[in-house]
């Protein structure tokens, strides 16, 4: 029991922080521009593919730095030449535009790299078990992921609270119009925000892909869950995104680890159903089986009772 708990906690933390790296960029973009970027996970995918392609030629470590920068530039270009044109048609058009871009990026990735999984793996330097507890290994690469995520988190925190740029961003989150009136170059700020936000997604892609796989569906697979995170945490709130990421990361890992199901519950209530009952699938459902669906359930319940999310303050 103890080993399950410890490992679930560790794995939940790794996964949760990864979600945060994605959701922080999404939140940043949303706060500044009011756009929920549907294509955010696609930039995560681009990060993975760029890093894979670069790692063949220049190795893993340079790719770790260069790939997110390339993704950031791609994001900035998308804002400059795409989103900015659509801005005048309103938020729904912007959301639909990013939806279309997500669709298109997946096609482009397939066009260039094909439809198969790509062999993008952890560097040999990190390919060893860091420690073994109760006979279960904890891989060094996971520790590395943890380290990078925390570093990014601290860097974000410092930039947002201690620097001038951070103050402008914070101001823009709460009073976007005021910032423009104070004479800041809003289009440039927007472009930079989009670039930085997508670069964050790019980093997530670079470090997560060796564990989660590099394939054309990877954006789609992760896309909706990061929406759940930002909406659950409260749109536009970085703190909310952080708490929600960890919550969802940990809840999901714990759900898988504990074999509790309806049969146990029914046994507790002293009920029993036949195997050919019309709802037999409902009576035999178990927690690991539905684990990955729990975030969606959490989202719906949250939105019904508190549409602002955990820490959200802005009505959308």
């Amino acid at each position: 029991m103890i080993e399950t708990t410890i490992f679930s906690l560790l794995n939940g933390l790794v996964y949760g922080l990864l979600l945060f790296m994605l959701s922080s960029g999404l939140t940043l973009i949303f706060s500044m521009m009011g756009v929920l970027n549907f294509a955010h996970a696609s930039f995560y995918m681009l990060g993975a593919y760029f890093a894979y392609e670069m790692s063949i030629h220049i190795g893993f470590w340079p790719a770790l730095i260069l790939a997110p920068i390339a993704v950031g530039f791609a994001g900035a270009a998308l804002e400059r030449y795409g989103l900015r044109n659509v801005h005048k048609y309103g938020h729904v058009a912007e959301l639909v535009f990013t939806f279309g871009i997500a669709f298109l990026i997946e096609e482009v990735v397939q066009f260039i790299w094909g439809k198969d999984q790509q062999p993008y793996n952890a560097p040999p330097l990190l390919d060893f078990p860091l420690f073994t507890l109760f006979n279960v290994d904890f891989p060094a690469y996971k520790a590395f992921m943890l380290f990078v995520s925390i570093a990014i988190f601290i860097a974000l925190l410092v930039v947002l609270t201690k620097t001038r740029v951070g103050l402008i961003i914070q101001a823009a989150i709460t009073h976007p119009h005021m910032v423009g009136m104070l004479g800041h170059n809003v289009p440039l700020v927007f472009m930079a925000t989009f670039g930085v936000g997508t670069a964050l997604a790019g980093i997530a892609g670079v470090i997560a892909a060796p564990v989660l796989g590099t394939y054309p569906g990877m954006a789609f697979d992760l896309g909706s869950i990061i929406f759940v995170v930002v909406v659950f945490g409260g749109l536009g709130s970085l703190a909310g995104a952080f708490v929600a990421s960890l919550m969802i990361g940990i809840v999901q890992t714990f759900a898988v680890s504990f074999n509790i199901g309806m049969p146990d519950l029914l046994a507790l209530l002293g009920l029993e159903f036949g195997a050919d009952h019309f709802l037999v699938d409902l009576w035999t459902i178990s927690l690991p089986q539905i684990g990955p669906l729990i975030p969606y359930l959490m989202l719906i319940i949250m939105l019904i009772f508190r549409p602002l999310g955990l820490f959200g303050s802005r009505e959308v």
Binding site: E3, T4, F7, N11, N135, V136, D221, Q289, P292
Partner: peptide
């Protein structure tokens, strides 16, 4: 487990190992 929805199988394999 749900098809195509599990991003990280570590919790499952930890259980298998246990």
């Amino acid at each position: 487990h749900p098809i195509g929805k599990v991003k990280d199988f570590t919790p499952y394999v930890t259980k298998i190992k246990a």
